[in-house]
Design a protein around this nucleic acid. Structure first.
Length: 764
DNA sequence: TTAGGATTGG
């Protein structure tokens, strides 16, 4: 028998073991077989806190996983360590270590049914003549070979490209697709979740649980999950995840910069700094690598014959028949189409009668079928819901001028069809609640009558001309047959426009070189910040005559250095809300936090002798929610010291344009760029809207970060071009357009642009 | 056990 030994071997790739020992794999670990002179080797995937048994003996439990082989049930086994060996092991062991044990006793595992691990466990102690060899994996600073290891179990997370059939693993992933929990045909709720991670491998997991709360609380694609003890199996040639005994999950909002707060029903879970970092990294990865979906659909933006997810509040519900159930919901916006009202007996309709009446023009009827009925029945009036993959069906009734629209949640769970209840703490719910409270009910009732006036054709001043009142109208046919450039006044209808997704109309424009650029997303900015953070702030540049500096080092493994330079006014620091600061080495989240508190934030980096702006793909200035960008082509950055001239002004206003000027930046302006297809019965032409603020009376710079303004713009477009209307029923628009020539070597084209026109005040 | 993603009927 080997000697009683606990040997720690660091930094060696091979474990020198006594030559008489032979390796055994999990399959060979069976009761009744001789294990003398045999050893078992596995990776530590979990360790429990060191405890004392009733008789005072130290006790330590670790879980080993055999990464090479597996038996039919599982690939992990419990190892119970007693006495001095327990104490010694607890001190040194870390997850990821390779653990070799010889001279063990094999016994039936009483917990195998619960934990899904090997049917036997290994008992190890000095008294039994056991030997343990540990090959230590690289330590992180936080977990450096100390007893802290045993305070909480350590988990190993497997990337999705390293999953093996028959294993039980822990993993992280970004939700790429999900079906909200639904009642399965068996005894449990079921939820199907497809994950993806930076290895770009997908994993579809089928999760069952009799308790709805035990399934992950996923609300949208892009949420991030952490699964513990998920079983991996091969199915149809692909890896598949399925709940195993002891499955547990945490779910996080996938938005970069959002608080990292897990959604879980577990009362006890481990979550540490490293894990917070993992979530933040996954968010940035997802933002940069996965296609981001636009803002969620509102009732005001629904399109017929499509599917959409709706975040809404339940106002009423009613049984219809055995296989369908009615939900009456609202989201504060008005559906631009006439909507279908499902006839139900008044006594079957649940909900506050007064409210149902008040909101009658804003609620829509959603008919849910089959498997969704049971869940729908259990919903509480007033609760906030997200209904996934609602079908908007256009149905034309006879003797009606235009068709109405129906909302169905068909049976089945294809494409994630289903209903999820959102908690009041959900950020989308908070935003919706605020919006619902702001809705003026009198207004929405007025809208109904306005529509009918419009239909009569007596109400047509949806646009206002701001100049050139003397110009008379020209037919589109005449304009199309004329040479450019010229200016016209026209009367036309807006047949369609592009982009239909209004947030896509926002671009950045350089007035000097006339170029247009897409608005970068947060991921690009984050990458630039990460690149800049590699160079530490240069202390020689700190505390000058015009700014005060502070610097500190982060506590995480990266030991990142952050410096903030507060620009002074009259030798004094100003109130935060008046202060401009420059920041070095900050992350996206940190910068975002600084913008909440300080007037202006300029990300910079150190060189040997001065501070300078980052690459101009990043904003050169952040003020509140707005990021200001400079033109890469036309800017010639000047020394950052130029800011001191503004700081010296009597009352520095820190106007972005002024900051841009002293820094040599040609500032890009946010603009709406849209294409309107106009018709007047004589012809059709495409005219561009190129608008900073005037046409919509909404600043283009603010729309991307302001849902209310997006809502307002959608309403405006619905008035100019009401969806689902016949051409005859569209309102007339009066506008000015100018024609201009665009020539290149190959061709010559005439373009049209709308100018000196604005949307009427009672429309917006 | 259940489902194993992949819409359209009422």
């Amino acid at each position: 028998m080997p000697v009683q030994l606990l040997k720690v071997i660091k930094g060696k790739s091979e474990i020198p073991l006594p030559s008489h020992l032979q390796k055994e794999d999990l399959k060979q670990l069976q009761e009744g077989l001789d294990h003398t002179n045999k050893y078992f080797q596995g990776i530590v995937v979990l360790s429990y806190p060191l405890t004392k048994l009733g008789d005072g003996t130290d006790f330590f439990k670790v879980v080993l996983q055999d990464l090479d082989k597996w038996c039919s049930r599982s690939n992990s086994i419990n190892v119970l360590i007693y006495g001095k060996m327990a104490e010694d092991c607890a001190k040194v062991i870390c997850h990821g270590d390779t653990f070799v044990v010889a001279g063990f006793k094999l016994a039936k595992s009483p917990t195998a049914r619960e934990d899904g691990r090997h049917g036997c466990h290994l008992e190890v102690s000095e008294e039994a003549g056991s030997a343990i060899y540990i090959y230590t994996a690289p330590r992180t600073t936080a977990a450096s070979e100390t007893a802290s290891v045993s305070v909480a179990p350590k988990y190993v997370y497997t990337p999705l490209n390293h999953l093996k059939d028959g294993t039980i693993v822990n993993l992280y992933g970004v939700v790429k697709f999900f079906k909200p929990p639904y009642v399965s045909k068996g005894t449990d709720y079921c939820s199907v979740v497809t994950l993806v991670d930076p290895s770009n491998v997908k994993l579809t997991c089928t999760l069952f649980n009799g308790n709805l709360d035990a399934l992950p609380k996923i609300y949208k694609v892009g949420d991030i999950v952490r699964f513990h003890r998920i079983k991996i199996r091969e199915y149809n040639g692909q890896m598949q995840g399925i709940t195993s005994a002891g499955f547990a999950s945490l779910t996080f909002d996938g938005t970069v910069g959002a608080p990292v707060v897990p959604r879980t029903s577990s009362k006890v879970y481990t979550f540490m700094d490293e894990e917070q970092k993992t979530i933040e990294d996954l968010r940035v990865w997802a933002a940069t690598n996965l296609s981001i979906s636009g803002p969620a659909a509102k009732l005001s933006g629904v399109q017929p014959m499509l599917y959409f997810d709706l975040t809404c509040q339940l106002v009423g519900k009613a049984k219809v028949d055995g296989s369908s159930f009615l939900l009456k919901v609202w989201d504060g916006t008005k559906c631009p189409y006439p909507t279908w009202k499902v006839p139900v007996e008044a006594r079957d309709l649940e909900g506050e009668k007064v409210l149902l009446h008040q909101l009658r023009n804003l609620t829509v009827d959603i008919l849910v079928y089959d498997n969704h009925v049971q869940l729908a029945k259990s919903l509480k009036i007033g609760s906030f819901l997200r209904i996934y993959s609602i079908h908007t069906k256009q149905a034309s009734a006879e003797n009606e001028d235009f068709s109405h629209i129906e909302f169905h949640l068909h049976g089945g769970t294809c494409y994630g069809r289903g209903i999820g209840v959102l908690p009041e703490s959900n950020p989308d719910v908070k935003e919706l609640k605020t919006f619902l409270e702001s809705v003026d009910l009198a207004d929405s009732q007025g809208m109904e009558s306005m529509s009918s006036v419009e239909l009569d054709g007596t109400f047509n001043n949806v646009t206002v001309l701001t100049d050139h009142q003397d110009l008379s109208n020209t037919e589109l046919k005449t304009i199309l047959n004329s040479t450019a450039p010229q200016q016209y006044r026209i009367r036309a209808k807006l047949r369609t426009y592009k982009p239909q997704k209004l947030y896509q109309s926002i671009k950045l424009h350089c007035s000097k070189c006339n170029s247009l650029r897409e608005v970068p997303d947060g991921g690009d900015f984050d990458l630039i910040l990460q690149g800049a953070a590699v160079t530490a702030p240069n202390p020689d540049l700190h505390n000058t005559s015009w700014y005060n500096s502070v610097m500190w080092t982060t506590q995480d493994q990266k030991q990142r250095k952050i410096a903030i330079h507060f620009v002074k006014h009259d030798e004094m620091l100003q109130q935060p809300e008046d202060t401009l600061l420059m920041v070095e080495g900050g992350t996206l989240k940190e910068i975002w936090k600084l913008t909440k508190r300080f007037k202006c934030v300029i990300p910079v980096r150190s060189t040997e002798d001065h501070l300078e702006l980052l690459d101009l793909s990043a904003p050169f200035l952040l003020q509140g929610n707005i990021k200001y960008y400079g033109c890469k082509q036309c800017s010639t950055p000047k020394p950052i010291k130029g800011l001191s001239s503004i700081a010296a002004e009597q009352r520095p206003s820190w106007e972005p344009s002024e900051i841009a000027q002293v820094l040599g930046i040609e500032q890009l302006q946010y603009v709406f760029v849209m294409r309107f297809t106009l018709v007047d019965g004589t012809g059709a032409l495409n005219a561009y809207i190129f608008d900073y603020e005037k046409f919509f009376q909404i600043p283009a710079s603010e729309i991307l970060t302001n849902n209310f303004l997006q809502e307002k713009m959608q309403m405006t477009m619905n008035t100019l071009c009401p969806p689902g209307r016949k051409l005859d029923d569209l309102p007339w628009l009066e506008c000015f357009i100018k024609s201009y020539n665009v020539r290149d070597a190959m061709k010559h084209q005439v373009y049209y642009q709308i100018f000196d026109t604005t949307v009427a005040e009672d429309v917006v």
